[in-house]
Write a protein that binds this DNA or RNA. Structure first.
Length: 574
RNA sequence: GCGGCUGUAGUCUAGUCUGGUUAGGACUUGGGCCUUCCAAGCCUACGACCCGGGUUCAAAUCCCGGCAGCCGCACCA
């Protein structure tokens, strides 16, 4: 299996291995080795080129440990859990809500545990496996809990996603962007989920790296200024409709998928295109990628539309490596409510609106004596009412009844005056909607390794794009002789001095060294041979087809730099 | 989290059932010889019984516990 070959090389040659090996390891944790660490950095740097440089979304960094309040507001404390129940006889563990749903057809998602337990006993539900008795329902929260401070009074959690770190300082980020929508903010970093039983290698980790962008948009304007740049990009769409009707994914251009309403908005479509371009740059071919729309049932209740970018693998089938969702205003609204901070954005109208409206003016000298301490509250409540309705009621009945804190107060005509005022309204405050591209870096690295891995005849090649390969060039003396070695060494040192990651290898025959070099995806090799000593030329060998071209030593740096940056193709040198 | 199977150098493996010499081999890797372009050959070196406990004169081998991997079940905002 390709997976096994790739993971073998990854382990053997220093890309990836499971952590804590000398202590038997812990499931769900992986180390990046010397090459893996560099590859990961290169990929993250490329991501930044897209989102920070290309889109102008600035990068922030927030703590990986978060206080309970913040995750309470985001919903993770209460809802990032699975309600589990265990069979007392066969000890199997089940999702309690799934058992109830399967047996009764009731949708009980989100009900508290004691209600679920009650339903289990009321409906006399038994273990679906052995018909044994089921225990009371308990929540398994997937967050790692910790303690903040020496007294241990404050509960903290390792963040389950980087996104919350962007929502929380929203006011500052909005101010940084001078109050205007749309704007985006990104964060790359670790996130943590205490998975029950992670057994899918690097696909399901307990500690993993995300790269997320939160794009704050006006809910009424989800366009993108550069949509025209991507409108002809081809998308392989596995829509809700395709999935429900058992059809194959459909290929449409970005423009078509927007026009046909397959994808909810222009911004979302643009983000999907951007993600695909990124993956293409990493060497993942189109034909192993599809965009799968979340089914209504699996989408978060607050989301408008959500698409997973999936990659085909031989071992795990189609895996989600990127999720792009329209999260609407859920997160900001929720943090607004819990923190009591106004997280809305003021949107100015193109033209100020002149609005004529009726205003109530309470007669203070009546209110005070009559209502004493309740007076301020009543006045506050009265001002919130629609003045024209109040006036109507008084004109018709001579009084208006107002309920404040459970007490009903009757207000008559002499408690207030009405005034026609003209007000200028310059805009309104709204919660922006959030479009969120969320990248699983570890899964992307796995996909890159998997799909760059090739066996040509008996050669193993990792065809990493030259601009993300961890080692950029290998310097090889044809045979292990002092005269050749010293020239090779000098070229190696010179390239390093100029910022190119070069390796130097004299061990074994030239063929063996090319093979080792190909296996870790070094895109180019410089070979120093006997002609070099005569005419100061060397050959540059192209990893992907073993072709060589001879160039003067003085041009080596310049040529390699262009090759690595993909400014010229190797074929153009021949 | 449950059940089954498995765990010997970097990798693949012999040995385990039936306890007993220095745990054997191949590939890989390091050093050397040879070598004028794609894993050749020769010499040489390094390198292992998953961890802990028990039984025994003696444990890679038998027993118990743990950890990890694979498979199945369950789970996967």
């Amino acid at each position: 299996m390709k997976n096994d070959d790739v993971m073998n090389i990854a382990k053997k040659r220093g890309f990836l291995w499971s952590s804590f090996e000398i202590y038997s390891g812990v499931a769900g944790f992986y180390d990046y080795g010397p090459l893996g660490g560099t590859l990961k950095n290169n990929i993250m740097q490329k991501w930044r080129e897209y989102y920070v440089v290309g889109e102008g979304y600035y990068e922030i960094e927030s703590p990986t440990i978060m206080p309970e309040e913040a995750l309470k507001a985001s919903g993770h404390v209460d809802h990032f859990t699975d309600p589990l129940t265990e069979c007392k006889d066969c000890l199997n563990v089940f999702r309690a809500d799934h058992i109830i749903n399967d047996a009764t057809g009731k949708d009980v998602e989100g009900l508290p545990n004691d209600e679920l337990s009650q339903i289990l006993s009321e409906e006399k539900l038994m273990c679906p496996h052995c018909s044994g008795h089921l225990t009371h329902v308990w929540s398994y929260n997937l967050m790692f809990q910790t303690i903040i401070g020496s007294k241990g009074k404050k509960t903290g959690y390792l963040r389950p996603e980087t996104a919350q770190g962007i929502f929380i300082p929203f006011k500052r980020l909005l101010r940084f962007n001078r109050g205007k929508l749309p704007f985006g903010v990104v964060q790359l970093g670790k996130a943590y989920r205490n998975e029950i039983s992670p057994r899918q290698g690097v696909i399901r980790l307990r500690e993993f790296t995300q790269a997320e962008a939160e794009i704050f948009t006006d809910p009424r304007d989800k366009t993108h200024p550069r949509f025209a740049d991507v409108s002809d990009d081809i998308l392989n769409l596995y829509s809700q409709e395709c999935q429900e009707q058992g059809k194959e994914p459909v290929k449409l251009t970005a423009q078509e998928s927007l026009d046909k309403g397959v994808i909810a908005s222009e911004m979302l479509t643009y983000q999907l295109c951007l993600a695909l371009r990124f993956l293409k740059d990493l060497g993942i071919p189109d034909n192993v990628i599809r965009l799968r729309q979340h089914l209504t049932s699996e989408m978060a209740h607050y989301a408008i539309d959500c698409w997973d970018v999936e990659v085909e693998t031989d071992k795990y089938d189609w895996i989600e490596i990127i999720g792009i969702a329209d999260r609407t205003d859920f997160d900001l609204k929720s943090h607004n409510q819990y923190s009591k901070e106004d997280l809305r954005v003021f949107i100015e109208y193109p033209e100020p609106k002149q609005v004529k409206m009726l205003q109530v003016k309470p007669n203070m000298s009546k209110f005070g004596p009559q209502f004493k301490g309740d007076a301020p509250k009543i006045i506050e409540a009265l001002k919130d009412m629609d003045a024209s309705q109040v006036k109507e009621s008084i004109d018709a009945n001579g009084e208006y009844s107002l309920e404040v804190n459970g007490k009903t107060h009757l207000l008559t005509r002499d408690f207030m005056d009405f005034q026609e005022v003209e007000e200028t309204i310059r805009g309104e405050k709204i919660f922006p909607h959030v479009i969120e591209p969320s990248f699983g870096i570890d899964r992307i690295i796995y996909s890159v390794l998997l799909h760059c891995y090739q066996e040509d005849d008996d050669r193993t090649i990792l065809k990493l794009p030259a601009n993300i390969a961890p080692v950029e060039v290998n310097i090889l003396p044809l045979v292990n002789k002092d005269a050749l070695n010293s020239v090779a060494r000098e070229i190696h040192d010179n390239l390093r001095k100029n910022g190119i990651i070069a390796e130097y290898d004299t061990s074994g025959t030239i063929g063996r060294r090319y093979a080792r070099s190909d296996e870790i995806g070094i895109p180019f090799a410089v070979t120093v041979d006997h002609d070099t000593l005569e005419d100061d030329t060397v050959t540059i060998r192209n990893r992907d087809n073993s072709k060589q071209v001879r160039i003067p030593i003085k041009d080596v740096y310049k040529t390699l730099k262009c090759l690595i940056n993909l400014e010229i193709k190797f074929e153009e040198l021949i």
